[in-house]
Write a protein that binds this DNA or RNA. Structure first.
Lengths: 106, 106
DNA sequence: TGGACATATCAACAGATGTTCATACCAAGG
DNA sequence: CCTTGGTATGAACATCTGTTGATATGTCCA
């Protein structure tokens, strides 16, 4: 599902590319949801009320941008924010894109 | 060129819409440049080395998103970050979008 | 092994977006 | 006024993007 290790591929994507990955209502919703912790695809789909296939496409965009991470969990797949993206701060409201960081309004 | 006053139209644009406006290499360059202060279109064009018409189109996107402001200055037009967007902090590295704020890496 | 479940991928399409070129608009000076 | 410089707008186009429906892949369990 991904390369061998967690590459921390900063500088591979431009800031514009990363923002493009986030600049979508559905994907923003996914990211906001994942700020609260990991979740299986089915949970995310239930929360956002969107089709399975559509969600999968959006998750792919986020994955390929290095924003989220996918881990097999039985038949399901567990998604979480990529470690590099998860801000080190206590408050779970920030996405660290490398080029810039994005603080969600509470 | 704009409505009568400075409306502070928060909530009119979704966070995704605002991010879309920023999620472009050229427009990000413009915004980064304007973080350093106001500038005429010609200056921005010289800095970014892009065609006049293309720049104008991109400036329009930023304007309509409420991210930048345009003021006539003789035959030229002076662009600056919209007041609402300019972060109150001392460091000129943040864009406040209302829904979220974006901190540029120094 | 076969079937059910969870997710990913493929193909196709409509609509949005970035770019270019031509043209229109606006302000200042002669 | 007419012209010139600076910027905005419009049309046309190729490309990218989001969405859908159908199908494939992977995993568990009987």
């Amino acid at each position: 599902m991904s390369k061998s290790s967690q590459p921390l591929q900063r500088e591979v994507f431009s800031c514009a590319d990363l923002l493009k990955a986030l600049a979508d209502q559905t994907r923003l919703d996914v990211v906001r949801f994942l700020l609260g912790g990991s979740a299986h695809v089915a949970e995310i789909g239930a929360e956002l009320k969107i089709e399975q296939s559509l969600l999968s496409h959006h998750l792919r965009v986020l994955r390929e941008a290095g924003i989220v991470r996918a881990i097999r969990d039985g038949k399901a797949v567990l998604y979480s924010l990529a470690p590099a993206v998860n801000s080190s701060g206590r408050k779970k409201d920030r996405i660290d894109l490398g080029c810039c960081s994005l603080t969600m309004r509470s």
